[in-house]
Design a protein around this nucleic acid. Structure first.
Lengths: 208, 208
DNA sequence: CTCAAATCGGAGCGATCTACTCCGTTCACC
DNA sequence: GGTGAACGGAGTAGATCGCTCCGATTTGAG
Protein backbone atom coordinates (compact mmCIF):
# COMPACT_ATOMS: atom_id res chain seq x y z
CA UNK A 1 0.00 0.00 0.00
CA UNK A 2 1.18 3.43 -0.88
CA UNK A 3 4.25 2.46 -2.85
CA UNK A 4 2.78 2.49 -6.35
CA UNK A 5 1.94 5.15 -8.81
CA UNK A 6 1.85 8.86 -8.81
CA UNK A 7 0.23 9.21 -5.41
CA UNK A 8 3.12 7.39 -3.81
CA UNK A 9 5.53 9.78 -5.48
CA UNK A 10 3.48 12.65 -4.12
CA UNK A 11 3.80 11.29 -0.59
CA UNK A 12 7.52 10.76 -0.97
CA UNK A 13 7.90 14.25 -2.33
CA UNK A 14 6.01 15.67 0.61
CA UNK A 15 8.39 14.02 3.05
CA UNK A 16 11.45 15.11 1.11
CA UNK A 17 10.03 18.59 0.99
CA UNK A 18 9.53 18.81 4.74
CA UNK A 19 13.00 17.45 5.42
CA UNK A 20 14.59 19.88 3.01
CA UNK A 21 12.56 22.79 4.35
CA UNK A 22 13.65 21.97 7.89
CA UNK A 23 17.27 22.02 6.90
CA UNK A 24 17.13 25.11 4.74
CA UNK A 25 14.97 27.16 7.11
CA UNK A 26 17.03 26.33 10.17
CA UNK A 27 20.22 27.04 8.31
CA UNK A 28 19.30 30.24 6.50
CA UNK A 29 16.23 31.54 8.29
CA UNK A 30 12.89 32.41 6.80
CA UNK A 31 14.55 34.51 4.11
CA UNK A 32 15.97 31.42 2.47
CA UNK A 33 14.86 31.13 -1.16
CA UNK A 34 12.03 28.73 -1.79
CA UNK A 35 13.89 27.47 -4.82
CA UNK A 36 16.65 26.22 -2.51
CA UNK A 37 14.13 24.08 -0.67
CA UNK A 38 12.74 22.69 -3.91
CA UNK A 39 16.20 21.95 -5.26
CA UNK A 40 17.36 20.26 -2.08
CA UNK A 41 14.22 18.15 -2.08
CA UNK A 42 14.76 17.25 -5.74
CA UNK A 43 11.33 18.61 -6.56
CA UNK A 44 10.02 21.29 -8.88
CA UNK A 45 8.59 24.58 -7.74
CA UNK A 46 5.23 23.51 -9.07
CA UNK A 47 5.08 20.48 -6.80
CA UNK A 48 5.94 22.59 -3.80
CA UNK A 49 3.35 25.27 -4.39
CA UNK A 50 0.62 22.73 -5.09
CA UNK A 51 0.97 21.45 -1.53
CA UNK A 52 1.62 24.70 0.30
CA UNK A 53 0.00 27.86 -0.90
CA UNK A 54 2.75 30.09 0.44
CA UNK A 55 6.21 29.87 1.90
CA UNK A 56 4.79 30.89 5.25
CA UNK A 57 2.27 28.08 5.25
CA UNK A 58 5.06 25.58 4.64
CA UNK A 59 6.98 26.83 7.65
CA UNK A 60 3.90 26.86 9.86
CA UNK A 61 3.16 23.25 8.98
CA UNK A 62 6.78 22.36 9.58
CA UNK A 63 6.71 23.88 13.05
CA UNK A 64 3.65 21.93 14.07
CA UNK A 65 5.20 18.69 12.88
CA UNK A 66 8.42 19.40 14.75
CA UNK A 67 6.55 20.07 17.97
CA UNK A 68 4.51 16.92 17.54
CA UNK A 69 7.74 14.99 17.26
CA UNK A 70 8.89 16.66 20.46
CA UNK A 71 5.79 15.41 22.24
CA UNK A 72 6.52 11.93 20.97
CA UNK A 73 10.04 12.19 22.32
CA UNK A 74 8.72 13.19 25.75
CA UNK A 75 6.39 10.23 25.77
CA UNK A 76 9.23 7.92 24.85
CA UNK A 77 11.15 9.39 27.77
CA UNK A 78 8.25 8.88 30.17
CA UNK A 79 7.95 5.30 28.98
CA UNK A 80 11.45 4.68 30.28
CA UNK A 81 11.39 3.28 33.81
CA UNK A 82 14.54 5.13 34.89
CA UNK A 83 13.81 8.84 35.36
CA UNK A 84 17.28 9.96 34.38
CA UNK A 85 17.57 7.73 31.35
CA UNK A 86 14.13 8.89 30.24
CA UNK A 87 15.09 12.55 30.48
CA UNK A 88 18.42 11.92 28.81
CA UNK A 89 16.80 10.07 25.96
CA UNK A 90 14.36 12.91 25.44
CA UNK A 91 17.10 15.51 25.28
CA UNK A 92 19.26 13.45 22.95
CA UNK A 93 16.35 12.69 20.67
CA UNK A 94 15.31 16.33 20.37
CA UNK A 95 18.83 17.48 19.65
CA UNK A 96 19.29 14.74 17.07
CA UNK A 97 16.05 15.87 15.42
CA UNK A 98 17.07 19.54 15.70
CA UNK A 99 13.50 20.25 16.78
CA UNK A 100 14.50 23.36 18.67
CA UNK A 101 16.23 24.92 15.70
CA UNK A 102 12.93 26.06 14.25
CA UNK A 103 11.98 28.12 17.28
CA UNK A 104 14.01 31.17 16.22
CA UNK A 105 12.62 31.03 12.70
CA UNK A 106 9.07 30.66 13.95
CA UNK A 107 9.47 33.97 15.72
CA UNK A 108 9.68 35.73 12.37
CA UNK A 109 6.28 34.68 11.00
CA UNK A 110 2.65 34.67 12.01
CA UNK A 111 2.06 32.05 14.69
CA UNK A 112 -1.12 30.07 14.07
CA UNK A 113 -3.51 28.83 16.73
CA UNK A 114 -2.49 25.29 15.95
CA UNK A 115 1.12 26.18 16.66
CA UNK A 116 0.22 27.70 20.02
CA UNK A 117 -1.84 24.66 20.94
CA UNK A 118 0.87 22.19 20.02
CA UNK A 119 3.46 24.23 21.87
CA UNK A 120 1.31 24.20 24.99
CA UNK A 121 0.94 20.43 24.85
CA UNK A 122 4.67 20.01 24.43
CA UNK A 123 5.36 22.25 27.41
CA UNK A 124 2.96 20.44 29.67
CA UNK A 125 4.18 16.94 28.91
CA UNK A 126 7.83 17.95 29.13
CA UNK A 127 7.13 19.47 32.53
CA UNK A 128 5.99 16.06 33.74
CA UNK A 129 9.17 14.40 32.54
CA UNK A 130 11.32 16.97 34.29
CA UNK A 131 9.26 16.85 37.48
CA UNK A 132 9.72 13.09 37.64
CA UNK A 133 13.48 13.48 37.38
CA UNK A 134 13.43 16.13 40.10
CA UNK A 135 11.41 13.94 42.43
CA UNK A 136 13.79 11.05 41.87
CA UNK A 137 16.67 13.35 42.76
CA UNK A 138 18.58 12.66 39.54
CA UNK A 139 18.38 16.22 38.19
CA UNK A 140 20.03 19.18 39.87
CA UNK A 141 17.41 21.21 41.65
CA UNK A 142 18.33 24.65 40.37
CA UNK A 143 17.48 23.73 36.78
CA UNK A 144 13.97 24.08 35.33
CA UNK A 145 12.19 22.64 32.33
CA UNK A 146 12.69 25.91 30.47
CA UNK A 147 16.42 25.78 31.11
CA UNK A 148 16.45 22.38 29.48
CA UNK A 149 14.33 23.53 26.55
CA UNK A 150 16.64 26.45 25.95
CA UNK A 151 19.66 24.20 26.28
CA UNK A 152 18.26 21.92 23.59
CA UNK A 153 17.50 24.93 21.46
CA UNK A 154 21.08 26.10 21.76
CA UNK A 155 22.39 22.67 20.81
CA UNK A 156 19.98 22.44 17.90
CA UNK A 157 21.42 25.51 16.22
CA UNK A 158 22.68 24.44 12.82
CA UNK A 159 26.31 23.86 12.06
CA UNK A 160 27.94 25.81 9.26
CA UNK A 161 28.70 24.30 5.91
CA UNK A 162 27.19 21.17 4.48
CA UNK A 163 25.82 18.66 6.99
CA UNK A 164 28.40 16.05 7.90
CA UNK A 165 28.60 13.03 10.17
CA UNK A 166 31.58 14.61 11.90
CA UNK A 167 29.45 17.51 12.99
CA UNK A 168 26.76 15.25 14.36
CA UNK A 169 29.38 13.30 16.22
CA UNK A 170 30.85 16.44 17.78
CA UNK A 171 27.41 17.60 18.78
CA UNK A 172 26.82 14.33 20.60
CA UNK A 173 30.07 14.75 22.50
CA UNK A 174 29.22 18.28 23.55
CA UNK A 175 25.73 17.28 24.54
CA UNK A 176 27.15 14.49 26.69
CA UNK A 177 29.14 17.12 28.55
CA UNK A 178 26.06 19.25 29.12
CA UNK A 179 24.05 16.24 30.27
CA UNK A 180 26.70 15.45 32.85
CA UNK A 181 26.34 19.01 34.03
CA UNK A 182 22.61 18.52 34.48
CA UNK A 183 22.86 15.68 36.96
CA UNK A 184 22.41 16.41 40.63
CA UNK A 185 24.08 17.95 42.43
CA UNK A 186 25.79 20.68 40.43
CA UNK A 187 29.34 21.62 41.30
CA UNK A 188 28.19 25.22 41.26
CA UNK A 189 24.94 27.09 41.68
CA UNK A 190 23.36 28.42 38.52
CA UNK A 191 23.56 32.21 38.39
CA UNK A 192 20.47 34.40 38.65
CA UNK A 193 16.84 33.49 38.33
CA UNK A 194 15.48 30.81 36.00
CA UNK A 195 13.74 32.02 32.81
CA UNK A 196 10.04 32.76 33.20
CA UNK A 197 7.37 31.12 31.01
CA UNK A 198 6.13 34.58 30.02
CA UNK A 199 9.48 35.56 28.61
CA UNK A 200 9.91 32.18 26.98
CA UNK A 201 6.64 32.51 25.07
CA UNK A 202 7.06 36.18 24.29
CA UNK A 203 9.88 35.34 21.92
CA UNK A 204 7.22 34.13 19.49
CA UNK A 205 5.05 37.19 19.89
CA UNK A 206 1.95 37.72 22.01
CA UNK A 207 0.16 34.54 22.98
CA UNK A 208 -3.55 34.51 22.08
CA UNK B 1 44.54 62.55 23.27
CA UNK B 2 42.35 61.26 20.56
CA UNK B 3 39.10 62.75 21.77
CA UNK B 4 39.11 65.91 19.69
CA UNK B 5 38.16 66.73 16.20
CA UNK B 6 37.17 64.81 13.16
CA UNK B 7 39.85 62.18 13.59
CA UNK B 8 38.42 61.22 16.94
CA UNK B 9 35.00 60.84 15.37
CA UNK B 10 36.57 58.62 12.74
CA UNK B 11 38.02 56.38 15.43
CA UNK B 12 34.73 56.19 17.27
CA UNK B 13 32.96 55.35 14.03
CA UNK B 14 35.42 52.59 13.31
CA UNK B 15 34.69 50.97 16.64
CA UNK B 16 30.94 51.32 16.23
CA UNK B 17 31.28 49.86 12.76
CA UNK B 18 33.13 46.79 13.96
CA UNK B 19 30.69 46.20 16.80
CA UNK B 20 27.73 46.53 14.49
CA UNK B 21 29.32 44.32 11.87
CA UNK B 22 29.97 41.63 14.45
CA UNK B 23 26.36 41.61 15.51
CA UNK B 24 24.86 41.76 12.04
CA UNK B 25 27.21 39.21 10.48
CA UNK B 26 26.83 36.67 13.28
CA UNK B 27 23.08 37.09 13.25
CA UNK B 28 22.40 37.07 9.53
CA UNK B 29 25.49 35.61 7.95
CA UNK B 30 27.63 37.11 5.23
CA UNK B 31 24.57 37.82 3.11
CA UNK B 32 23.43 40.48 5.53
CA UNK B 33 23.01 43.84 3.80
CA UNK B 34 25.85 46.27 4.27
CA UNK B 35 23.32 49.03 4.81
CA UNK B 36 22.12 47.20 7.93
CA UNK B 37 25.62 47.39 9.38
CA UNK B 38 25.91 51.08 8.58
CA UNK B 39 22.50 51.82 10.06
CA UNK B 40 23.18 49.87 13.23
CA UNK B 41 26.48 51.71 13.62
CA UNK B 42 24.78 55.06 13.04
CA UNK B 43 27.13 55.76 10.17
CA UNK B 44 26.67 56.52 6.49
CA UNK B 45 27.55 54.14 3.72
CA UNK B 46 30.25 56.52 2.60
CA UNK B 47 32.06 56.31 5.92
CA UNK B 48 31.95 52.53 5.83
CA UNK B 49 33.31 52.16 2.33
CA UNK B 50 36.06 54.70 2.91
CA UNK B 51 37.51 52.39 5.57
CA UNK B 52 36.86 49.01 4.01
CA UNK B 53 37.01 48.65 0.27
CA UNK B 54 34.58 45.76 0.21
CA UNK B 55 32.17 43.92 2.46
CA UNK B 56 34.51 40.95 2.43
CA UNK B 57 37.45 43.04 3.64
CA UNK B 58 35.37 44.25 6.58
CA UNK B 59 34.57 40.71 7.63
CA UNK B 60 38.15 39.57 7.23
CA UNK B 61 39.35 42.37 9.49
CA UNK B 62 36.61 41.56 11.98
CA UNK B 63 37.69 37.94 12.16
CA UNK B 64 41.28 38.84 12.89
CA UNK B 65 40.22 41.19 15.68
CA UNK B 66 37.93 38.58 17.19
CA UNK B 67 40.73 36.01 17.24
CA UNK B 68 43.12 38.51 18.77
CA UNK B 69 40.61 39.05 21.55
CA UNK B 70 40.50 35.30 22.01
CA UNK B 71 44.23 35.23 22.49
CA UNK B 72 43.92 37.96 25.09
CA UNK B 73 41.28 35.92 26.88
CA UNK B 74 43.59 32.91 26.95
CA UNK B 75 46.36 34.99 28.41
CA UNK B 76 44.03 36.33 31.07
CA UNK B 77 43.16 32.73 31.89
CA UNK B 78 46.80 31.73 32.12
CA UNK B 79 47.44 34.67 34.41
CA UNK B 80 45.03 33.13 36.89
CA UNK B 81 46.83 31.02 39.47
CA UNK B 82 44.06 28.45 39.72
CA UNK B 83 44.02 26.24 36.61
CA UNK B 84 40.30 25.62 36.72
CA UNK B 85 39.34 29.22 37.38
CA UNK B 86 41.64 30.29 34.57
CA UNK B 87 40.04 27.94 32.10
CA UNK B 88 36.57 28.84 33.28
CA UNK B 89 37.28 32.54 32.93
CA UNK B 90 38.55 32.00 29.39
CA UNK B 91 35.45 30.11 28.35
CA UNK B 92 33.08 32.60 29.93
CA UNK B 93 34.90 35.53 28.39
CA UNK B 94 34.84 34.07 24.90
CA UNK B 95 31.17 33.23 25.10
CA UNK B 96 30.37 36.68 26.43
CA UNK B 97 32.30 38.15 23.50
CA UNK B 98 30.63 35.74 21.06
CA UNK B 99 34.04 35.29 19.48
CA UNK B 100 33.17 31.87 18.14
CA UNK B 101 30.08 33.07 16.35
CA UNK B 102 32.15 34.40 13.47
CA UNK B 103 33.72 31.05 12.67
CA UNK B 104 30.76 29.81 10.61
CA UNK B 105 30.59 33.07 8.68
CA UNK B 106 34.31 33.06 8.01
CA UNK B 107 33.88 29.75 6.24
CA UNK B 108 31.89 31.48 3.52
CA UNK B 109 34.59 33.92 2.38
CA UNK B 110 38.21 33.91 1.30
CA UNK B 111 40.47 33.27 4.29
CA UNK B 112 43.50 35.54 4.31
CA UNK B 113 46.99 34.58 5.43
CA UNK B 114 46.64 36.86 8.40
CA UNK B 115 43.52 35.02 9.48
CA UNK B 116 45.30 31.67 9.28
CA UNK B 117 48.24 33.01 11.28
CA UNK B 118 46.07 34.47 14.02
CA UNK B 119 44.02 31.30 14.22
CA UNK B 120 47.18 29.27 14.66
CA UNK B 121 48.37 31.49 17.50
CA UNK B 122 45.00 31.22 19.20
CA UNK B 123 45.07 27.45 18.93
CA UNK B 124 48.53 27.13 20.35
CA UNK B 125 47.99 29.34 23.37
CA UNK B 126 44.61 27.81 24.15
CA UNK B 127 46.25 24.40 24.06
CA UNK B 128 48.57 25.48 26.86
CA UNK B 129 45.66 26.63 29.02
CA UNK B 130 43.87 23.34 28.54
CA UNK B 131 47.00 21.28 29.12
CA UNK B 132 47.57 23.04 32.44
CA UNK B 133 44.05 22.19 33.55
CA UNK B 134 44.54 18.58 32.52
CA UNK B 135 47.79 18.30 34.45
CA UNK B 136 46.15 19.78 37.52
CA UNK B 137 43.42 17.17 37.23
CA UNK B 138 40.60 19.71 37.21
CA UNK B 139 39.39 18.95 33.69
CA UNK B 140 37.92 15.63 32.66
CA UNK B 141 40.49 13.68 30.69
CA UNK B 142 38.34 12.67 27.73
CA UNK B 143 37.85 16.27 26.64
CA UNK B 144 40.26 18.08 24.30
CA UNK B 145 40.96 21.70 23.49
CA UNK B 146 38.99 21.34 20.27
CA UNK B 147 36.00 20.03 22.18
CA UNK B 148 36.10 23.17 24.27
CA UNK B 149 36.51 25.41 21.24
CA UNK B 150 33.54 23.81 19.58
CA UNK B 151 31.53 24.05 22.77
CA UNK B 152 32.23 27.77 22.92
CA UNK B 153 31.31 28.08 19.27
CA UNK B 154 28.00 26.38 19.94
CA UNK B 155 27.26 28.69 22.85
CA UNK B 156 28.25 31.73 20.83
CA UNK B 157 25.57 31.12 18.24
CA UNK B 158 23.33 34.17 18.20
CA UNK B 159 19.93 34.22 19.82
CA UNK B 160 16.91 35.08 17.72
CA UNK B 161 15.22 38.44 17.88
CA UNK B 162 16.72 41.62 19.22
CA UNK B 163 19.53 41.23 21.74
CA UNK B 164 18.22 41.29 25.29
CA UNK B 165 19.67 41.01 28.80
CA UNK B 166 17.38 38.04 29.43
CA UNK B 167 19.03 36.12 26.64
CA UNK B 168 22.49 36.86 27.96
CA UNK B 169 21.39 35.76 31.39
CA UNK B 170 20.00 32.49 30.10
CA UNK B 171 23.17 31.87 28.16
CA UNK B 172 25.20 32.27 31.34
CA UNK B 173 23.01 29.74 33.12
CA UNK B 174 23.38 27.21 30.33
CA UNK B 175 27.10 27.76 30.13
CA UNK B 176 27.38 27.18 33.89
CA UNK B 177 25.76 23.79 33.35
CA UNK B 178 28.21 22.91 30.60
CA UNK B 179 31.16 24.07 32.70
CA UNK B 180 30.05 21.76 35.50
CA UNK B 181 30.02 18.98 32.95
CA UNK B 182 33.60 19.76 32.01
CA UNK B 183 35.05 19.20 35.48
CA UNK B 184 36.78 15.96 36.23
CA UNK B 185 35.68 13.28 36.37
CA UNK B 186 32.72 13.05 34.04
CA UNK B 187 29.74 11.01 35.09
CA UNK B 188 29.89 9.36 31.68
CA UNK B 189 32.49 8.76 29.01
CA UNK B 190 32.28 11.00 25.96
CA UNK B 191 31.14 9.00 22.93
CA UNK B 192 33.44 8.33 19.98
CA UNK B 193 36.74 9.93 19.11
CA UNK B 194 37.62 13.59 19.73
CA UNK B 195 37.58 15.91 16.72
CA UNK B 196 40.80 16.08 14.74
CA UNK B 197 42.66 19.34 14.05
CA UNK B 198 42.52 18.58 10.32
CA UNK B 199 38.77 18.41 10.32
CA UNK B 200 38.53 21.46 12.55
CA UNK B 201 40.54 23.58 10.15
CA UNK B 202 38.97 22.15 7.02
CA UNK B 203 35.71 23.86 7.88
CA UNK B 204 37.35 27.10 6.74
CA UNK B 205 38.65 25.64 3.52
CA UNK B 206 42.10 24.30 2.69
CA UNK B 207 44.86 25.58 4.91
CA UNK B 208 47.78 27.19 3.04
C1' DC C 1 -2.89 0.81 -27.49
C1' DT C 2 -5.50 5.31 -26.48
C1' DC C 3 -6.32 9.02 -23.91
C1' DA C 4 -7.89 11.86 -20.06
C1' DA C 5 -6.52 13.03 -15.48
C1' DA C 6 -2.99 13.85 -12.33
C1' DT C 7 1.43 15.21 -11.29
C1' DC C 8 5.76 16.60 -12.61
C1' DG C 9 9.89 20.16 -13.36
C1' DG C 10 11.40 24.64 -14.28
C1' DA C 11 11.39 29.05 -17.37
C1' DG C 12 9.55 33.55 -16.85
C1' DC C 13 7.65 37.82 -14.63
C1' DG C 14 7.28 41.83 -11.82
C1' DA C 15 8.68 43.52 -7.61
C1' DT C 16 12.18 43.86 -4.30
C1' DC C 17 16.68 44.20 -2.64
C1' DT C 18 21.90 44.84 -2.73
C1' DA C 19 26.72 46.33 -3.21
C1' DC C 20 28.80 50.12 -4.22
C1' DT C 21 29.38 55.08 -6.18
C1' DC C 22 28.93 59.89 -6.06
C1' DC C 23 28.17 64.23 -4.34
C1' DG C 24 26.41 68.12 -1.60
C1' DT C 25 26.90 69.22 3.39
C1' DT C 26 29.24 69.72 7.89
C1' DC C 27 32.85 70.68 10.93
C1' DA C 28 37.62 71.34 13.05
C1' DC C 29 41.41 74.12 12.37
C1' DC C 30 43.94 78.19 10.72
C1' DG D 1 36.22 83.48 6.29
C1' DG D 2 38.64 79.74 3.77
C1' DT D 3 40.03 74.96 3.33
C1' DG D 4 39.97 70.23 3.09
C1' DA D 5 39.00 65.97 5.41
C1' DA D 6 35.25 63.34 6.94
C1' DC D 7 30.39 62.94 6.88
C1' DG D 8 25.51 60.88 5.47
C1' DG D 9 22.59 58.97 2.18
C1' DA D 10 20.18 59.12 -2.52
C1' DG D 11 20.94 56.87 -6.83
C1' DT D 12 22.16 53.01 -10.16
C1' DA D 13 22.73 48.85 -12.43
C1' DG D 14 22.37 44.31 -11.63
C1' DA D 15 21.00 40.27 -9.04
C1' DT D 16 17.40 37.69 -6.54
C1' DC D 17 13.02 36.23 -4.94
C1' DG D 18 8.13 34.57 -4.51
C1' DC D 19 5.05 32.87 -7.24
C1' DT D 20 2.58 31.67 -11.77
C1' DC D 21 2.02 29.16 -15.76
C1' DC D 22 2.54 25.60 -18.92
C1' DG D 23 4.42 21.82 -21.73
C1' DA D 24 6.18 17.18 -20.69
C1' DT D 25 5.65 12.77 -18.35
C1' DT D 26 3.36 9.05 -16.02
C1' DT D 27 -0.72 6.34 -14.58
C1' DG D 28 -4.34 3.40 -15.14
C1' DA D 29 -9.03 2.50 -17.05
C1' DG D 30 -11.44 1.18 -21.27
Amino acid sequence: MGTRGRQAEARRNDLRLLTAAHEVFTRQGFDAPVSAIARQAGVGMGSLYRRYRTKEELLQRLCVIAMERTVEAVEAGLAHADPWEGLSLYVRTCVADRSGALAPVAGTIEVTDEMWRTARTAEETAERLVARAHEAGVLRRDVTMLDISLLMEQFSRPAPGPPSPEHDHVRQRLLAIALDGLRAPGATVLPGEPPTPEWYRSRWGDAP
